[in-house]
Each structure stands twice: as C-alpha cells, then as structure tokens.
Design a protein around this nucleic acid. Structure first.
Lengths: 148, 148
DNA sequence: TCAAAAAAAGATATGGGACTCCTTAATGGG
DNA sequence: CCCATTAAGGAGTCCCATATCTTTTTTTGA
C-alpha cells in the first residue's frame, strides 16, 4: 500500500515513541536494528520527518538521537503519511483516473469510496500513542525478521 | 493503490469488454485512445494479459485486434490483478512486516484486516461484466483527460 | 500468392525509488 | 578547548516501472 520509505517512517516513529523521551533519546543504529531497516536509508527518512518539525525531533552529539514529545504522540498516523507524500495514494482512483469523482465516477468508484473512507478514518483516528500502547501490551510487534 | 500497468490493464479490459466480441475486435490504437494510455506500453500490457490465456484474446492481421468472450467477462477483477502481479499488494502489511499475521500482528493489523477483507471481497465479487454494464448506463467513465 | 494490417517480440531509453558512502555540522564530556 | 559521538547533508549507484521505437510474425482479404 505504501512505499518502503513510508513503512520505515511508520515503524521508526512507533519505535521512537516507545523508547524515547526528551531526556532519553534513541540513536539511528538502535532504531534501524529494532525495526530492521537499512540504517543509511532510515537516516534520510528520519531527516525528512525531522524537518517537518511536527512529529519527531533530534539532537546530534553524544547522548543525542531522536525523540518525540508527548504532545506529538497525539498526532494521527495520517500526519506521518502526509510528510511522506502518501496523501494521494489514499485519494487515488482505483483505475487511475484523474477526474474520477462523485460527479464523474469510474465503475469502481461507488463501491470503493466506502472502503477508502474507512482507510482515511482509520489513519485519522489512530494516533502514534495508540500504536505505542499496542506495542506495550506485548501482543504486537514492529520488527521484521532478518532477510536471509 | 495499483501500478500504472495495472490501471491500464483494468481500463483496457473494461473497454475491450464493452466494445468487442469474437466477431468484432478492437485494435490497440482505438483502445489506447479510448482510455488515454500510451499505445506501445499498452501493447505490452495487453500482451501479458493475452498470454495468460484466460481474460482477453487477440488475433493479428486485418480486422484483427483484441476481444473477450462472454465467459471471460464473468471473471472477477481479481483475475486481472493476479495476472498483473498485484496479489501481494492486497495482502501486504501496512507497516511492511513480512511476518505480520493474526498470530503476530503489527499495531495496525487488528483494525486494518477488516478493511483489507472488504477490498478482497470487492475485487472478488465485481466482475468484468459488472464494470462493463456500469459503463453502459452512461453514469460512469474510464477515459482520462489528456494530460497537457 | 501477395500485400496490407495488426499483434508479438525485441531492443533501448528514462525517471524515480531504494539504498550506500563520505563529508560536514552540532553537541557534550573530559 | 579538544575529541568522541551522533545527526545532517550531499553525491552517487542500482534496479525496476514506465515508456518508446523498430523489427518480426501472424493473419486476412484481394
């Protein structure tokens, strides 16, 4: 559904939410190990998220790293998707028509719109904090198995 | 949601269903004009669909072209997606985890699975014939506006 | 049987996503 | 103030989806 970049962004943000605070930051190496993502590439993605200045923050130097404020944890997953430029993915027509709309629908539109609405609702409702809490229950995970 | 190739495949198939029969075939030029897709690229995609030997058929030479049998029109949209290799797209984890499952879910899994199920149901239920009929009511279209 | 028509096949760009590496800047500890 | 640490930034690689162009093969109709 989403690009690799976005997948890493989501997993990394959840991990940072889970493990960091303003006092205790997490480093790139730990993050990419925890979510099993390529470190250098993850760095680029975290840079992008950081520049947005809304979701994650970072500090260089010893004991530096990434963190996320309690306030930012209340942001919906949709905020991450927006930064990663996935907004259009969710609004796109199944058949790829630019002008597909309620007024000029494609043959899939009338049925797909209800499903799309649920997707949008889910990503708007679910916050970073929600996902972090799910992890803490231990019933849920964000680490990929190492590829062979 | 899907690749350009798949979008063209869907639109082209619907157009062929709408305009062709075993007696009256439609040519590549007409198809790509009707759905506004690059002709040469569309040719490749139709080749792939054709090779599958289930959905569309073709005949070269004068008055040749592409067509689809009445029987094949009863195939679900999912059949096209399968040929285009989009099967994994629909089964993929939102966070990109290989092992995400009911037993080992990601934090989005429990809510996303219901939406995913609806998507799968829609693509399994909706047939090519259904889409063709929607077009015939005239309330629906498959042609993109020409890009400037 | 020949020529035209149309799809099939092959060869070749091109742009962007995915990723790596190297250098630079910022920070904190000794 | 210097050095180790860590993120930021820049440049470049690789591959695949997208797309085009050309040549070959198949078929039909005259």
């Amino acid at each position: 559904m989403f690009s690799k970049s976005t997948e890493y962004a989501l997993r990394a943000t959840i991990y940072i939410a889970q493990k960091s605070s303003e006092e205790h930051k997490v480093g790139l190496a730990e993050i990419s190990a925890a979510i099993d993502s390529p470190p250098s590439f993850t760095a680029k993605i975290l840079q992008a998220l950081r520049k947005d200045n809304k979701i994650i923050r970072s500090v260089p130097g010893p004991n530096g790293g990434f963190y996320i404020t309690e306030k930012a944890k209340n942001l919906p997953v949709h905020a991450i998707l927006k930064v990663m430029g996935e907004d259009d993915v969710l609004n796109k027509c199944v058949l790829g028509l630019d002008k597909c709309s309620e007024a000029k629908p494609c043959p899939m539109h009338s049925e797909y719109k209800f499903i799309k609405a649920q997707l949008l609702e889910l990503f708007d409702r679910k916050t970073i904090l929600d996902l972090e809490n799910d992890i803490k229950t231990g019933e849920v995970f964000i680490k990929n198995s190492r590829k062979k």
